[in-house]
């Protein structure tokens, strides 16, 4: 327990990096989008009424997808959390096991907090009619669109998943360098392609379609959580024989 806490403090010794950097990048993305939508004129369509042609403002919100930037940054921080920090950790007599557990716990805790902040911002977005410009930055259709607790849960699991994936990538790089990392990524791509081919071959696309359309955001979160656990176990197995 003490060691886990100290490992977390180790990662937070320069706090703004893991805590602030994802938000700094997200803010830039947010401001750029806000400025763009403030200048882009509202689009209208014309409707024939008893008073002749009337222009009606389009109701479709301005989606941005900018919230993705925080997920990418969390992935990068996950990659960095092991690669550059492990050697000094081992120099100080920490075991790989403790280092991994402490780092993963920090990542999960950060994901929970960051997810909560994203949920809060989404609530503000809803209350202000999309920041006054009908912008849906923190709302993403289908995925981040439900009640606040589902939004929180989905954000939390999504961020944790990317952190854990980043950790595993970092460990693979630590053990097998660039060549190993490329093989690792290639293997993941191969698995996805193989899955697609099998589905095509089995003519099972409609089944998959039904699975995902039948899946609620909460159900999707469950799938992501299972994937995160899988990645966590993969990282654990990989770090066991890592050398520095």
């Amino acid at each position: 327990m003490r060691t886990w806490r100290d490992i977390a403090r180790y990662h937070l010794v320069i706090p703004w990096l893991p805590l602030g950097l994802p938000w700094a990048i997200l803010s830039v993305s947010f401001i750029v989008n806000l400025v763009i939508f403030a200048f882009v004129p509202q689009s209208y369509h014309e409707v024939m009424t008893g008073h002749g042609l009337v222009q009606v403002a389009d109701a479709a919100p301005n989606y941005t997808g900018g919230v993705v930037s925080i997920y990418i940054l969390v992935l990068v921080i996950g990659i960095n959390s092991i690669g550059r920090s492990l050697p000094f950790g081992l120099a100080l007599g920490v075991t790989r096991r403790s280092f991994y557990t402490g780092t993963a716990l920090l990542g999960v805790a950060l994901a929970a907090v960051d997810g909560l902040l994203l949920t809060g911002l989404q609530a503000i977005e809803r209350a202000t009619d999309g920041w006054g410009v009908n912008m849906h930055f923190f709302q993403v259709p289908y995925i981040l669109d439900g009640p606040w607790y589902v939004t929180w849960l989905t954000s939390f699991v999504g961020l944790a998943l990317l952190f854990v994936w980043g950790m595993w990538c970092g460990i693979v790089y630590r053990r097998w360098n660039l060549f190993g990392s490329m093989t690792f990524v290639a293997a993941q791509v191969t698995m996805v392609v193989a899955a697609v081919l099998i589905l095509v071959w089995a003519d099972a696309w409609s089944g998959v379609g039904h699975f995902f359309t039948g899946l609620t955001a909460a159900g999707l979160t469950g799938v992501l959580a299972a994937l995160a656990v899988l990645l966590l176990a993969g990282g654990q197995a990989t770090i066991r024989r890592a050398t520095v």
Partner: peptide
């Protein structure tokens, strides 16, 4: 991987890799 043993040892190498931080950070962590 033996916590009980490793925590009684210190080994800072000639080619030690540190994260991107300052001298005082390394000392604080240690």
């Amino acid at each position: 991987e033996n916590e009980a043993v490793l925590r009684r040892m210190v080994f800072v190498r000639e080619d030690q890799v540190y994260p991107d931080f300052k001298v005082r950070h390394a000392l604080r962590i240690a």
